[in-house]
Simulated assay, not measured.
Amino acid sequence: MGSFIGHLVPGTAFSIFGLWFAYCTLHRFFLCSRVAFMNGNKFVGKYRSTCSFTCPCCPTVPLEGIIKILASVLAISGEFVTAFEGGKFEHLGNAQHMMMYFFFVIHGVADLAVHYKAGVPPDVDYLTAACAFFMESLLFFTHLHGRPLMDIQVHTFVASVALLCGFAMLLEASFKNSVVPALGRAFFILLQGTWFLQISFLLFSPLGTYFDHNSHEHMMVVTCIFTGHVALALLLMVLLGIFCHRRVGNMPPTTAYHTLHSHALSGTFSKFDSVQVKHIIAGSDEEDP
C-alpha cells in the first residue's frame, strides 16, 4: 500500500533478513576457514552456501521459511483489506503488491520443502527466491505511471536493487563454494530494506517533508541519499564481518568443530565431511583437559 506503514513494514523485514543473511554467511565462512586451517584439510571446513539458515535455538525447525510465509500472508491480507473503498476494490496498486508478496510465499514453501527433503528439484529454493525478486522488480517498474518524479525515482531504485537481488541468488546457486555471491545477496537485500525505510520518510513522513516531489534539485539530493544507503549497507557488513571474525577466532577448537558438525547435520556439508568432523570432534574432546 502506498503509505508510511506500507513501506515501513517491508523495509523493516528486508533489513532484518539482510542482516541475518550477512551474519550467518560471514559466521559460516570464518568458521569454515578456521576449521580448515586447524585441520590442514581442504575437505573439512570447506565453505558451502545455503539459501536459508537454521536458528541455533531450534536447528530442526525451518523458522526462516515459516517466517517468510507468515509475514507474506499477513502483508497480502493487509494489502487486500486496504484496497477497498466504498465496498469496491479500487486500489489496483495493492493487487500488484499482493502478487509480489505471493511469490515470497512460494519461496517460503520451497524453503520448507527443501528442509524436509520433500523430493523437490535441487536448488528450487534459490530459483523461487530469484523469481520472487524478479517479479518484485517487474511489478515496481510497471507501478509508476503518472506518479510524481521523485516517487518514480525512489521506486526505480527499489526495482533496480530487487533485480540485483535476483541475479545474486542465481549466482549463489551456481557458485555455492564461493562466499562472494552470498555476501552480494545479503548486501542487496539489506540495501533494499534500508531504502524502503527511507522511502517511507521521503514520501509519507508523518512529521512532514521538505522535499518537492517534482524538483530536479531535490531529486539530486535523493540520489545522494541513496548512495549513502549503499555506503551504510557496506559499513554494516564490514562491522558484522569484524564481529564474526573475532567471535569465531575466540572459540575453543572443540566449540568450532562442534559448530561445524551442527552445520553438517543441517545439510550444509556432505555426509563425507560430516563423518570427518565427527572424528575431529572425538579427537579434540580427548585433548581437552
Rank of each mutant, 00 (worst) to 15 (best):
77 S>M: 14
103 F>A: 08
80 F>M: 12
108 G>D: 02
134 F>N: 12
93 G>A: 03
98 M>Y: 07
121 P>G: 05
56 P>C: 00
77 S>W: 04
69 I>S: 05
87 G>C: 01
50 T>H: 07
45 G>W: 04
79 E>Y: 01
112 L>P: 08
42 K>Y: 04
45 G>P: 04
92 L>S: 02
138 L>Q: 04
131 C>M: 14
99 M>E: 07
55 C>H: 11
109 V>G: 10
75 A>N: 01
130 A>G: 08
43 F>M: 06
75 A>Y: 02
94 N>P: 01
50 T>W: 01
114 V>A: 11
86 G>H: 05
111 D>N: 06
113 A>E: 02
72 S>P: 09
118 A>G: 10
109 V>S: 07
49 S>G: 08
58 C>H: 13
131 C>A: 14
125 D>R: 08
65 G>S: 02
60 T>A: 02
107 H>T: 14
39 N>V: 08
116 Y>H: 12
86 G>A: 00
37 F>Q: 15
71 A>C: 10
52 S>N: 10
97 H>E: 04
130 A>C: 12
104 F>Q: 06
103 F>L: 10
94 N>E: 01
99 M>R: 03
95 A>G: 09
44 V>L: 05
95 A>V: 13
102 F>Y: 13
61 V>T: 06
66 I>Y: 08
67 I>S: 10
63 L>Q: 06
